[in-house]
């Protein structure tokens, strides 16, 4: 077992089952976002959660700007975690951008995966008529600006921690409490990799059965996008949730758990 990857990606493994369920967080968060959902599966599955390099409590010194300027670099993180634990028959659960990261990983090594569960996925966020992604380029630039404005404050707070200021433990404690702790430069690159990505060409080649969890009234991944995915991906199941917004696993964990459970039992 390669422990360096496990440390690098802050991998946590728990649960009583044998089949692995690998939960991958989306942009802006870390593995904590899964904490309302994972306990429900811990009795029957082996749960693996992790932080992408650059997010949460991952090893920032392992951050490689080139690797993480495209989603393929994040997919490498996923595969490396899988290799380190030598996982097979993996149920991959990805939120938002992690749905596409998971898709890229399964396309690369389909033999490792059993199912792909996508929560609020979108293969492309920017409109490309007749394709409707929901956003124009300037909207994404608006997001980047909003992030930057917020990181002005956050960056000042995080700077000492990023510089690995070990002799000031109070800083790392504060950092632990701030789950969105991310270096602003890294966050911006992740945002660009996410929102400027176009994975439509990768959909048709998927070799793993998938569940598309489409929220009602999701501004980030509109209904048309879920339909498009279902139409394009072979062996896909589309479920429209009553949950609104983009983070049903946090806002509506019960429904999210029920839909995943139903899908897994139906195979």
């Amino acid at each position: 077992m390669d422990t360096s990857v496990l440390t690098r990606n802050n991998v946590r493994v728990f649960g009583q089952g044998t089949q692995p369920m690998l939960f991958a967080h989306g942009f802006g968060c870390d593995q904590n976002m899964w904490r309302y959902v994972t306990p429900a599966f811990a009795d029957d599955y082996r749960i693996i959660v992790f932080d992408y390099v650059g997010s949460g409590k991952s090893d920032l010194s392992a951050y490689d700007p080139k690797r993480y300027s495209a989603l393929a670099g994040y997919a490498e993180d996923v595969l490396e975690v899988i290799h380190s634990l030598d996982l097979t028959d993996v149920i991959f659960v990805g939120h938002s951008v992690s749905s596409m990261i998971g898709l890229l990983a399964t396309n690369q090594e389909p033999e490792r995966f059993a199912q792909l569960i996508m929560v609020g996925p979108s293969p492309r966020y920017i409109n490309d008529p007749p394709y409707v992604g929901g956003f124009e380029r300037k909207d994404i630039e608006g997001l980047l600006e909003t992030m930057e404005k917020n990181y002005i404050g956050w960056a000042n707070f995080l700077a000492p921690a990023i510089m690995k200021n070990a002799d000031r433990p109070e800083l790392s404690r504060e950092l632990e409490e701030s789950f969105c702790s991310t270096d602003p430069v890294i966050a911006r690159r992740f945002a660009e990799a996410t929102f400027f990505s176009d994975n439509r060409a990768d959909l048709a080649g998927v070799r793993v059965p998938s569940l598309i969890m489409q929220c009602s009234d999701d501004l980030i991944a509109p209904f048309d996008v879920g339909e498009y995915l279902h139409r394009t991906m072979p062996q896909s199941t589309l479920r429209v949730l009553q949950a609104t917004g983009h983070c049903p696993h946090m806002s509506h964990p019960e429904e999210t758990i029920a839909v995943i459970r139903e899908y897994l039992s139906g195979r």
Partner: peptide, 10 residues
């Protein structure tokens, strides 16, 4: 729109 994404992601 930018703030909507920020609201959902952060």
């Amino acid at each position: 729109l930018g703030s909507r994404i920020f609201y959902q992601t952060h």
